[in-house]
Design a protein around this nucleic acid. Structure first.
Lengths: 140, 140
DNA sequence: AGAGAAGCTTACGTTGACGTAAATGGAACG
DNA sequence: CGTTCCATTTACGTCAACGTAAGCTTCTCT
């Protein structure tokens, strides 16, 4: 095992390194820890983030881009990291995940609708524009 | 006396009728007015919502389902109701809409990824479950 | 006339996801 | 040795999108 504390294989990262890597603030990482989304280990006072934390943070940030709440994300993370859970817990988590999946597919359907609507509106307005400007091309 | 109101063409609605029709609260409608998303006319003190307001509210609620902010929705509404705008305004609005569209398509792509990820995670955990429970079917 | 019901305005409260400031402490540098 | 730089904790501030309560008018029904 290469668990050397020395910098050869740097398995853990400081808060600053994390911030630079993921483009978040220290506040955000501490906040996520307080909400039990991350579990950095401590070296004295200071936090050290493991690759596990990095994997989780990656998923957290992706979840956020869809508008999932941190609480919802926490549940998804539980799913991802549920290797040693009990079967009953697991199947309950599966239910949560299935619901989430249904939500996401609904959302995708609506998103598709909205995309098409927006597209047609855009071309509609483009037509108006060419007409207004004396049916010449309206590009600058 | 049951008021037949004014003409037989009742194309304005009271705040309560609006609330019932769209399942929102009065507070919400007043709030949207204060944010210039709706423009009900006034009969004395009271608000009267036109079909234009109803069309806008419909779009507002749809936009909200995607997680658009009210401010973003306001911009989209400007697009929808830009019939009498200037060409320059219109083309600037088109830019906004094009950006939004790009956002939505990015979001759609990510959502697709996430859906697939989640699906595979789910079946993965399902397999774990059947294994844990002694490779019998793990109903309930 | 009195009691509701419905609407209005004003304004403070709430939740989620952090921002930001203040006070503190160890480490590195010149 | 003092200064600067990170990091930490504690705690109040913020923004969006309303909720909710207080207090006032106005209409309607009995």
């Amino acid at each position: 095992m290469t668990q050397a504390n020395e910098p050869m294989t740097q398995d853990t990262m400081t808060i600053r390194e994390m911030c630079d890597l993921f483009d978040v603030t220290p506040r955000t990482l501490r906040f996520y820890e307080s909400k039990e989304l991350l579990f950095p280990i401590r070296e004295g006072q200071k936090r050290l983030f493991t690759r596990r934390d990095r994997a989780r943070l990656k998923l957290i940030l992706r979840g956020k881009r869809f508008g999932f709440s941190l609480e919802e994300i926490r549940q998804l993370l539980d799913l991802y990291y549920a290797g040693d859970q009990q079967a009953t817990q697991l199947s309950r988590t599966l239910d949560v995940a299935a619901e989430r999946l249904a939500d996401m597919e609904r959302q995708r359907a609506e998103l598709d609708l909205a995309i098409n609507d927006l597209k047609s509106q855009i071309s509609l307005v483009e037509d108006m524009l060419t007409h207004i400007t004396g049916h010449k091309d309206a590009a600058e």
